[in-house]
Structures are given as structure tokens and as C-alpha cells.
Design a binder for these strands. Structure first.
Lengths: 211, 211
DNA sequence: GTCTATATAACGATAGAC
DNA sequence: GTCTATCGTTATATAGAC
């Protein structure tokens, strides 16, 4: 029953029409949102006719829902793996930061898409595209409590620590154009700046939780 | 020449038609974006006819530009004041965090609106709605360098420190719906959690920059 | 200034030929 | 499965009466 189009393998030439439509829709919905993306534009990018969009996906809403579902269900399990692993806390945090920043660098628009979707269409999110395997932060929380009890890190609510780490990883990429505006950086300087984030965030976080 | 509608003073009953239109447009554009907001809806909320929108603001694009300009030109000077003040660094950071989080709590949709605008319409932003008085971070940067030289804080690039602070303040509010999804918090717990952010961010930042 | 009525274009969606 | 042609609606925008 799982004929959800696979957004991973993009074999540009050899794809099925259904897949090509889906890929085009994903790019445009992620970039422009539900209202901003137009069916004609999606058809053009997929190299097919407008009518075919409805043949395969019935309506714009349905197509959008499948795209949103796919994007979110692809992003969350990756994060889940990181959050739920049982490796020692310090190592886990370091790996999380490295991997997470790497992930965002390669998918710049995804975080903003997810944030926007959750803020503007919370109903649809919770009713139809709610991810099946959410990251369960309990393991992480327990580890933090244990390290605090052992005196290895200072007291801090695990929820705050988690959101702090995510904020430090995600925000600079989401606010990328602001770097140019406020810090007055050139495009090259911005990329250089963002490339430094992995090490910077790790230093900042580890120092912040020292006993 | 500055007949830019003033979005500060909202005297709900006694406003001019022009102002009522502007306020309605601002609310809807900020909530739904350029494509999501409809002229009919704006007219309805302003309690006037659709034709009047064009009488006062010519086109949807023009109206949107004025709204975006006003929102951004109102938000930035506030931040500017905080960033440019000459008070001692530690005190300044504390005040920045307190004030900034307070500001966001009361204007939840503004950060996401600005982020979206900068990401989706960078051309328009830089060509027409670029703010007149940008926050100049040089004072802040110099202060950080000085404190590092004095050995009062550990070495850190001032740019990273600034973006880290902003990230810790802004992100949890932008990602508010995610708190429910990932942390499994109820609405009351979310509000409680966000209320703790002022103290949490201050602790986190000060600890992170200790020598 | 404010309204009703309408022009004009774009959009999502469908019918029907091949 | 893919196309052309077109329907029905809604969107922005304008004309013209008051």
C-alpha cells in the first residue's frame, strides 16, 4: 500500500511521469508554498501537460499533502536516529551537531518549509501529514539527567538543552539572507561563516553545559 | 513626503479608511503571505469595499510592499538601539535577551514574516523595502573583542556570538508548534516553557562565553 | 470618497479525442 | 497514458454612478 513516491532517488532521465510530476511539485511547493506554486508551473517543470497533474494526483491539495508528507517523513526519521541513539551523551551531541548542520547545508529550504507548514497549516499537519515515527527525546532526556546527577554537566532542563542545540544549528541557515543585511557579509563570507558553524556550535554548547 | 501609514497607533474606531485598510492588510499579509492573503479578505476585515483598496494603494503588490516596509522598518530600529548601546557588554547582552524575547512574545508572527520575506523575495527586499537604519553591530563587535583581550570572556568570533544569541531567542518561538510535536507538550506547558526562556538563554550564553 | 457593476486575466479542474 | 480544448470560479483591477 506504500506507493508513496520516493523523493530520494532522482534518476533525472529515466523517471516515470508520476515521479517527475512529484519531483517538480516538491521543488516548487518547498520554494513557494501551497499558494505561491501554480499547477501550470509544476506541469512546465515536469515537462508534461496540466491535465496530467490531475490524472495522477486528483487535486492541488492532494498533491501538496503528499509532498509535505514525504518531505516531513523523510526529515524526521533521520533526526530520530540521532536523538534516540544510546551512545554517550557528549559524543552523541557532537555527532548530532555535525550531522544536523551537514543535513541542513544540503537542504536549505526544508527547515523553513517545515516551520512554515507547522505555523500556517497546523490543522492539516496534525490531521493528515503527521509523521509516523516521531523522534522520541526520552532517551536524550534521561541521559542528560544522568550526567547532571553524576556532576558531569551543570543542571539544565533537558528540553531547553535540546531546543538550544537545534536553534544554534538551524537558525543561521534559515536567517541566511539576514547575515548579509545585518553583518554586511558578502556571499563568499556567508558561506565561510556557515562552514564554521559545526565547530562553533560544539564549542558553544559544551562550554555552556560544563559543571 | 513620508505619508507612510503609522502602524503604531491603532485607535480602532477613529482610524481613517486608509489606515484601516493598512492595518487589515498588515495582519493578513503577515499571517498568510503575499499569495495567501486575498484582496477581498482584506477589504472585509477593513469593513470597506474591494475597489477602495485600489483607490488608496493602486495594486496588491504596492500594498504589500508598504506593509513589508513598515513591518521591517519598525522592527529593526528597536533591535538597533539594543545592539548599538554603549553600556557594558554583560549588562547589554542581558538587556538584549530580556527585551528581544519580550518583543517576540508579543509579536509572534513578525520574525517568521521577515525570515520568509528575505528568503522568498530577496530581490524586492534589497531593491525596495531595504530598511533605512540597519542595526550596526560594530559597537558590539568591538566590545566583545575588548572583553576577550581583557580576559573577561573566552575567545569567540563576535559574529558567531551575536547570531548565537539571536538564534536562542528567536528560534523557539518560530518553532513553537514543533514543541508540541517533538517534546509532546500541551499548550499550557509550551507557554510555561517559553516563559522560562529569558533566564535560560542568559544562563546558557553567559556560561558559554566564560573564560 | 465610497459604492455597484463589470472587465480581464489566471487558476484549478474536467471532458473527450487519440 | 497523454494531449487539446474548455468549463466554472476566483482573482486583481477598472469604469462609472452617486
Amino acid at each position: 500500500m506504500d506507493n508513496l513516491p520516493n523523493i530520494n532517488q532522482e534518476l533525472p532521465g529515466a523517471e516515470s511521469t508520476e515521479q517527475r510530476i512529484f519531483d517538480a511539485a516538491r521543488e516548487l511547493f518547498v520554494q513557494k508554498g501551497l499558494d505561491g506554486a501554480k499547477m501550470q508551473e509544476i506541469a512546465d517543470r515536469a515537462g508534461i501537460n496540466k491535465a496530467l497533474l490531475h490524472y495522477y494526483y486528483r487535486s492541488k491539495e492532494k498533491l501538496y499533502e503528499m509532498v509535505a508528507k514525504a518531505v516531513i517523513n523523510r526529515a524526521f526519521p533521520v533526526i530520530r536516529q540521532l536523538v534516540e541513539s544510546e551512545e554517550p551523551l557528549e559524543q552523541k551531541i557532537a555527532r548530532f551537531i555535525d550531522f544536523y548542520i551537514e543535513l541542513i547545508s544540503k537542504n536549505t529550504f526544508i527547515p523553513l518549509f517545515i516551520i512554515t507548514e507547522l505555523n500556517k497549516h497546523p490543522d492539516r499537519f496534525f490531521e493528515t501529514i503527521f509523521p509516523t515515527d516521531l523522534p522520541k527525546p526520552e532517551v536524550f532526556f534521561r541521559q542528560v539527567e544522568e550526567e547532571i546527577a553524576r556532576g558531569n554537566i551543570r543542571p539544565i532542563k533537558p528540553q531547553h538543552l535540546l531546543i538550544n542545540i537545534v536553534a544554534l544549528c538551524v537558525f543561521p541557515f534559515v536567517a541566511k539572507p539576514m547575515l548579509r543585511v545585518v553583518l554586511g557579509l558578502s556571499q563568499a563570507e556567508i558561506n565561510q561563516f556557515l562552514a564554521e558553524r559545526k565547530e562553533e556550535v560544539k564549542r558553544f554548547v559544551f562550554q555552556a553545559i560544563k559543571p
